[in-house]
Design a protein around this nucleic acid. Structure first.
Length: 220
DNA sequence: CACTAGATTTTCT
DNA sequence: GAAAATCTAGTGG
């Protein structure tokens, strides 16, 4: 992790020089306010290349954590709420980094870090619609129905081969994990709800999803 | 369908 | 030592 820290501090500094295709997800997009980034990620493609296999899916469900301090809200469900620790360090890096954590003794969850350095905010990717590498996803997940391949934060990490070795990657330049423009989503297709599976700051409506998409982890 | 329990290990109190 | 941003298989209606 230490040489990764060194490498990434370098790349974080280069963020304003990243090449930016029209509409692409450069660090410029990912350093915006967390709720803005969360909604903007819907409809984009999350792509990994792990073990020589490329897998990709459209982001259909996300949750925002820790952002929007300017609204006077303190998000107690955010891993960064009590300050920096070894686990959450990457959440305090510049927007565009990838934060992966291990939970319940068996699952990984992947986040896109948002806003500026030292903020401690991120967007959890909760569900994808499979696009590419579906055979590889099935090898990793077992022979489950297409709708069950990536419709949950732990499931999509397993399907795309995401684990903590990807924690700290910088999405605009990483060879392993990246976000690409895919589909433009109109405001009216985005639903919002309370976040799932948390016990603190339960009432914040910071989960966003594509209305009616069959790969969203659950309705309501 | 709805609901429950068990898996399994990191992390911080 | 307890809780955790989850998933699955199992039970019961």
């Amino acid at each position: 992790m230490l040489n990764k820290v060194r490498k990434l501090q370098g790349s974080a500094r280069l963020q304003s020089f990243m090449p930016c295709k029209k509409g692409a997800f450069s660090a410029t997009h990912l350093t915006k306010p967390t709720l803005t980034v969360a909604k903007a990620l819907l409809g984009q493609r999350l792509v990994t290349t792990v073990g020589g296999q490329t897998t990709a899916g459209m982001i259909v469900e996300v949750e925002a954590y820790g952002g929007s301090c300017e609204q006077g809200i303190r998000d107690r469900a955010c891993h960064a709420f009590r300050g920096r620790t070894q686990r959450n360090e990457v959440m305090f890096w510049a927007g565009g980094h990838c934060y992966v954590y291990f939970i319940y003794g068996m699952h990984h969850c992947v986040n896109v870090v948002t806003e500026g350095e030292d903020t401690g905010s991120a967007v959890l990717i909760r569900a994808l619609e499979p696009i590419d590498g579906i055979a590889t996803m099935r090898e990793r997940r077992g022979n489950v129905a297409l709708e069950s391949l990536t419709n949950g934060p732990g499931k999509l990490c397993q399907a795309l081969g995401i684990d903590r070795t990807l924690c700290g990657e910088f999405l605009p330049t990483s060879k392993l994990i990246r976000i690409e423009p895919h589909q433009r989503i109109s405001r009216s297709k985005i639903g919002a709800s309370k976040r799932i599976g948390i016990s603190q700051s339960k009432s914040l409506p910071w989960r966003f999803f594509l209305r009616g998409n069959p790969y969203v982890s659950r309705t309501s």
